[in-house]
Nucleic acid binder design. Structure first.
Lengths: 187, 187
DNA sequence: CGGAATCCGGATTCCACATTCCGTATTATG
DNA sequence: CATAATACGGAATGTGGAATCCGGATTCCG
C-alpha cells in the first residue's frame, strides 16, 4: 500500500547527496563532537539545509546513522580479534582498538559512554558488541589473563571510563587500559 | 576607592536570599545535573529571576559556586582520611567517598570529569585536591597497596572514569573501584 | 522532446533559555 | 518617621539553533 508500483528509481543525485552528507557529518562530528550544527554539516557537504533534513529528518537521526556505522566497524574488528587466536591480541587488543578509534573521533567517544551505560534501545549493533565482548572475555579467561569472575558488564564499565578519559584528555589512555587490564587479572 | 565609607550593612534579606538560592541550586543541580534552568532555580528558591542574577551574574558563576563548595567538602574528607592512618581507609576510602558523593550529585559528576581532565583554571581547590591525592598515594605506596610507579595522574584518570560510570549508570561503581585499585597494586 | 515526479536551497518560523531593565517594595540610618 | 540606599520581581528582550516551507531547478521516462 505504501509502494505504488509507479515507483521510479531514486534519483542519482539524491543518492550522491546522501553520501556527501554522511561523509561530511562523519568528519565534522569526529573532530568537534556533539555540538556541530546542522547548518555546518550542510555547508560542509555543500548541500542545502533542506536537503540535509530530507535525508535525515532529525539531528538525532543523523548522529545515530553515524554512530551505528562506526560501531559496526568496531564490532567487525572485535570479531576479527576474537577469531584470530593470538594471545597478544584478544581483550587487550580490542580495548586498544577502541581507544584508537575514540581518540580520532570525539563524537563517538561521547556516544559510546551513553551506549555502554543504560540498556538503551540501541538494538542489533549493541547486541553484537556485547556478544563479541563476551567471547573475548571467555578466551581471555581460558588463557588466564582475566579472573573467573570478570563479566561483560565489567568491561562495559572500563570502556565507559575509557571514553571519558579520552574525551577529557584526563591522562594517557594507554596507561588507563593497562591499569584496567591488571585490575581484571585473576588474583 | 571601592569602599566609600558611606557603606551600609548589607541588607539582611539580601543575605538570606543568597543562601536560599545556593541551597535550592545545590539540590536541583544535584538531582538533574547541568540542564536545570535559571528560572527553575529561582522558583525553587522562591525568589525572582532578577534576584538570582544579582547574586550570581551568570549561570556559570552559579554552577562554579556550587561546584567549588562540593569540591571543598571532598578535599576536607580526603585530608581527614590522609591524616587518620587507618589502613582500611586511605586511597580506597577516598575513592569510595568520591563515589558516594557523585552518586548523589549528578551535576558534580558532570563537573568532575572536566576538572580532573584538562588543567583548567580551577585554582585553589583543584590544587588542594591534587595535593591530598598525592599524599594518599604516598601513604598507600609505603603501605604497599599501590605500585611505586603510580602517579596522581593515574588516580585522576580513575576518578574521571568513575564519574563517567556513575553518571551513565554503566554498572556497579564499587566494582569499578575494586578493579581500579587492583590495577594499581604493585606487581 | 515534454511534462510529471522528485529533489534542491535557504530564508523563515519556532522555540527554549539566558540575561537585562526598570518600576516597586523593603531596609537601614539619623 | 523620613528618606536615601538597596534589593526585589518578573515581563520583555536577545540569541542560538533546530526544523519547516515552498518556489524553482533537475532528473527520469515515454
Amino acid at each position: 500500500m505504501s509502494t505504488p508500483q509507479t515507483r521510479r528509481k531514486t534519483r542519482t543525485d539524491a543518492e550522491r547527496n546522501r553520501d556527501r552528507v554522511l561523509e561530511a557529518a562523519r568528519a565534522l562530528f569526529a573532530e568537534f563532537g556533539h555540538d556541530v550544527q546542522m547548518s555546518e554539516v550542510a555547508r560542509a557537504a555543500d548541500v542545502g539545509i533542506g536537503t540535509l533534513y530530507r535525508k535525515f529528518p532529525t539531528r538525532e537521526a543523523l548522529i545515530e546513522a553515524i554512530a551505528e556505522h562506526r560501531a559496526a566497524e568496531i564490532v567487525a574488528t572485535a570479531r576479527r580479534l576474537a577469531d584470530t587466536d593470538d594471545p597478544a591480541q584478544g581483550l587487550a587488543g580490542f580495548l586498544h582498538h577502541v581507544g584508537e578509534v575514540l581518540t580520532g573521533d570525539r563524537g563517538m567517544s561521547e556516544v559510546i559512554e551513553k551506549v555502554m551505560g543504560s540498556a538503551e534501545p540501541r538494538g542489533e549493533t549493541r547486541e553484537a558488541l556485547l556478544a563479541v565482548v563476551a567471547e573475548l572475555i571467555d578466551r581471555a579467561r581460558v588463557r588466564g589473563t582475566v579472573g573467573q569472575d570478570v563479566t561483560a558488564g565489567d568491561v562495559n564499565m572500563v570502556i565507559c571510563g575509557l571514553a571519558a578519559v579520552i574525551r577529557n584528555a584526563a591522562g594517557d589512555w594507554r596507561r588507563y587500559i593497562e591499569v584496567a587490564l591488571d585490575g581484571l587479572r585473576p588474583r
